[in-house]
Design a protein around this nucleic acid. Structure first.
Length: 443
RNA sequence: GGAGAGAUGGCUGAGUGGCCGAAAGCGCCCGCCUGCUAAGUGGGUAUACGGUUAUAAGCCGUAUCGCGGGUUCGAAUCCCGCUCUCUCCGCCA
């Protein structure tokens, strides 16, 4: 991935991830935050490049100011007069020096920016210290993992699984990890989508149906680029990326806009398929529906006033949790530790449902506060009481990722006869309360 | 896919090489006036970065006229490339 210099400079000038002054004056705080996140990055080098950049800018602008003032003098001279020609000769030299310095300036800005963009977002004070996923804290749990069906089996071992979710034919048609959902499998997917969308819109989220491809700028704004380029499918002919989550197009929906402060928070929900290359995945993680290249998900995105973003994160998380509860699936909510949250995140919760057949937790949602990290890159702002533009905070969370929820339902709701009990909440769309264990779709 | 037109500040819209960051109008904000939800009138009205400074106000400077590059002492204005929008034709869910 190569973003042209101009784009980097644009990000540099308009969408930095920290406030520049804040950065210069709180280096130690940021250093401590990076250490907590277990990221390596050389802040002294960034500072040094920043100093160099500013020195060069100053020099270049000084010369440019001379050039401009000479220019207005020349406007008053008789064109072609001796005085005029003398001035032209004099300015020729200045002109070359201005060009040299401007080239230096571009270089200095580029060098600084590359270093600067490599700084992750700071973890919030409420994020626990930790090195890895084993240090995540269970913040909340619901339901009894021991209480699921005594018949529970891994979903990929169910006799009818390959008929509801046809991985073999998906492999033929596309490749491994591109399932067909068929019959009740497809209907279950649709029911979940409808249920989630209805619940979320009822909770006040505006429904949005986004484009499934985004341009590099959008992927940069939300932080997928340049960090995770290898995880996205790239349509090279058009230089577009297939979205790994609706977060990307939906957050960018309001990019480069100044929002009405009185309308914050703005909350949206979106259903979309998600495309992920999942390079490097292997083993039992990829069995059945645990990890696939294309899956359906309903996502929540919020644009929030900075003063309220951490409170709003709790509500967002509650919204996602409530959906799992309505499906009757045991789950736990993990508060991710500093070493396990992602590059752009300030605070993150992962919601995991209990898959009683596999006897393991499956992540079905990740709810995060990005504070101003994405909003600066995406230039999403509001006007404060003095009319000055300020960056908003962005939040998002899955509500929810469908295949793993489906897997948990298949496992936990398995009856002795092989049928699956349809969760009450889905019956309006399923049109039945049990799924037949012996479907015959293709003869 | 073919042909043409266009892209300027919150909006409309001037500006074809030089005090143009940009006329004018609208909108908006702050005054004044007016016995009244109007008219008139004066002023103000972008964003970002750098410097100065109390990390305030103010002031100074630079950049931005779709994006990138070029010509020139000097570019909104000229040249090249790209993107997007609109109209017409073709194709298509």
């Amino acid at each position: 991935m190569r973003i042209p210099l101009s784009k980097w400079v644009w990000i540099c000038l308009a969408g930095r991830m920290f406030d520049l002054k804040f950065f210069r004056e709180n280096v130690d705080t940021i250093r401590a935050g990076i250490a907590r996140k277990k990221f390596a990055c050389d802040l002294d080098a960034v500072l040094e490049l920043d100093n160099r950049r500013r020195a060069v800018i100053q020099e270049a602008e000084e010369l440019r100011a001379q050039q401009k003032s000479a220019n207005s003098d020349m406007a008053r001279l008789q064109k072609g007069s001796d005085a005029f020609m003398a001035k032209v000769a004099e300015m020729k030299d200045l002109s070359t020096r201005v060009k040299e310095l401007q080239a230096q300036q571009a270089e200095a800005e580029e060098a600084w920016l590359q270093a600067y963009l490599a700084i992750p977002n700071m973890p919030h004070a409420s994020v626990p210290d930790g090195d890895s996923e084993s240090d995540n804290v269970v913040a909340h749990s619901w339901g009894d993992p021991e209480g699921v069906s005594e018949h529970a089996r891994p979903h990929y071992d169910l006799p009818a699984f390959s008929r509801w979710v046809d991985l073999a034919r998906g492999t033929k048609v596309t490749g491994a990890g591109w399932p067909f959902f068929v019959g009740d499998g497809a209907r279950l997917v649709r029911s979940l989508i409808q249920f989630f969308l209805d619940e979320n819109t009822r909770a006040g989220y505006l429904e949005v149906s986004p484009p499934l491809c985004v341009n590099p700028q959008s992927a940069t704004a939300t932080g997928q680029l340049p960090d995770k380029e290898g995880q996205m499918y790239h349509a090279t002919g058009e230089d577009l990326y297939l979205i790994p989550t609706a977060e990307v197009p939906v957050t960018n929906l309001l990019r480069d806009e100044i929002l009405d402060a009185a309308r914050l928070p703005i909350k949206a929900c979106a259903y979309s398929p998600c495309f992920r290359r999942e390079a490097g995945s292997y083993g039992k993680d990829v069995r059945g529906l645990n990890r696939v290249h294309q899956f359906d998900k309903v996502e929540l995105v919020e644009w929030v006033h900075p003063d309220h973003s951490f409170d709003e994160l709790e509500q967002l998380r509650r919204q996602s949790e409530s959906l799992i509860e309505k499906l009757g699936l045991p789950y736990r909510t993990l508060l991710m530790c500093s070493g396990d949250i992602g590059f752009p995140h300030a605070k993150q919760y992962d919601l995991e449902v209990w898959a009683g057949g596999q006897k393991r937790w499956l992540e079905v949602s990740s709810c995060s506060n990005f504070t101003d990290f994405q909003a600066r890159r995406a230039k999403i702002r509001y006007r404060d009481s003095e009319g000055k533009p300020q960056v908003v905070h962005t939040l998002n969370g899955s509500a929810l990722a469908i295949p793993r929820v489906l897997a948990a339902i298949l496992e936990n709701n398995l009856n002795a006869d092989g049928s699956i009990t349809v969760p009450e909440a889905l019956r309006p769309w399923m049109g039945k309360d049990r799924i037949d264990p012996n479907p015959d779709y293709f003869g």
